[in-house]
Design a protein around this nucleic acid. Structure first.
Lengths: 222, 222
DNA sequence: TTACTTAGTTTCAATTTGCAACTATATATT
DNA sequence: AATATATAGTTGCAAATTGAAACTAAGTAA
């Protein structure tokens, strides 16, 4: 009999820091790659978990202390060579949260790395992260996905900036607002204003409760 | 020690027959659900397969005799309850082929079922097929995916019909042709004409070799 | 040679998008 | 108190895209 296939899950947790996408890495406490930073991941626990989504939520909670409102399956990475222990299958999920969710968890094991500054990572984690960024860039074109990177409340200029960071390009202000209005996923918080510097304050919005953990897509995009 | 997780792959092979999407099912030769029609699937073979994509190609070849030019990972379905044998993970792929590829394989174990006539299926296969159809409907809006359902050569009216079947809606002839031209994935076969009934024959096209197994996407869609 | 049917193109109106300039509203400065 | 200035948000319009209808083209059948 051959050794069984290694069945794991990994989570790509992304946030925006200093106007750039960052990924959350955790220091590995066990071999292989002990001591190295890698994606939070772990084994499926047949007893505790009803499915791999459960596993992903459990592992993310355990390793980072975070319970993300939005978690989506990315893809499954498998093969003979991606894990030195042998033939492995990793079902990968990705989550988007605002920076303050990560800071609130305040876990010293967690480090945030700019996705453009990633060095070599254990396993195929670099490839997994790049696949995730591509997926996000793609979905940012026609969905409310980037909204999950905003905090509980936000202004339209802030949200536009978040979309621009995801897309890697600037957007037209009028078109952006038309599309966000068309998506109909946010609502104004009456009376609330942002009052930043010495300029006109922006209105403050929040996600409509229904869309706090759901995606909305557009017919045409952007 | 707990029983190991069951690691399988399944393939959703779709084609168009009588102007409707059909899925290829094969009769199961072993328990569970022996004798029932289900998606072609099987175990990952650690020795033969370098990754799950290999497993999918091998299983599809073994069970249907088909080697599809286009195969894409759909999603992974997992959990305690989807397989009566226990906690299982199935990495699911989908493939699109023209009807004559299936007919050429001529395998009596394979049956083609209209996706709107599906009865209850073993495991969560009904759900898997519905997820696939949604994915295809989605990708048909902005990519060359439906082209893989056409045979080696085809006319533009035929290709439009294929897109309409995928999308479940009619398309504007002029817009469709503009978009296909913009995608730049097909080329005319000089001089070849379709000559069907008593009417003007249509020009015949084929996929550009580069796109025989690759997807092309549009910025805006349709 | 005329009718018929489907292929493919042209034209133009309707819709959508994107830029630039405008107005609005706060703080900071004089 | 008046004015400057910075960013928020809106308006108007030109450019680009899309979609419907009408047209021309090219074959077979009568």
């Amino acid at each position: 009999m051959t050794s069984p296939i290694i069945q794991t899950i990994d989570v790509v947790l992304l946030t925006i820091k200093n106007d750039k996408l960052h990924v959350a890495l955790v220091k590995r406490e066990t071999p292989p790659f002990q001591g190295y930073d890698a994606l939070p991941g772990g084994y499926v626990h047949e007893q505790e978990d009803n499915d791999c989504l459960d596993s992903a939520l459990r592992v993310l909670k355990t390793k980072t202390g975070i319970r993300p409102p939005y978690l989506e399956q990315l893809e499954t990475f498998s093969g003979k060579f991606r894990d030195p222990r042998g033939w492995s299958v990793s079902v990968v999920y990705f989550a988007l949260v605002s920076l303050d969710v990560i800071e609130a968890a305040n876990n010293p094991q967690v480090s945030l790395v700019d996705i453009d500054d990633l060095k070599d990572l254990p396993f195929d984690h670099l490839n997994i992260i790049k696949t995730t960024v591509n997926r996000i860039r793609n979905k940012a074109q026609y969905s409310s996905l980037p909204c999950f990177l905003a905090g509980e409340t936000f202004t339209l200029p802030t949200l536009q900036k978040i979309y621009e960071i995801c897309l890697g390009d600037t957007l037209n202000k009028v078109s952006f607002r038309r599309k966000i209005a068309e998506m109909d996923v946010i609502e104004e918080i009456a009376g609330a204003l942002s009052r930043q510097g010495a300029s006109r304050p922006a209105k403050i919005y929040k996600l409509k409760p229904y869309y706090l953990e759901k995606l909305k897509t557009l017919e045409s995009g952007l």
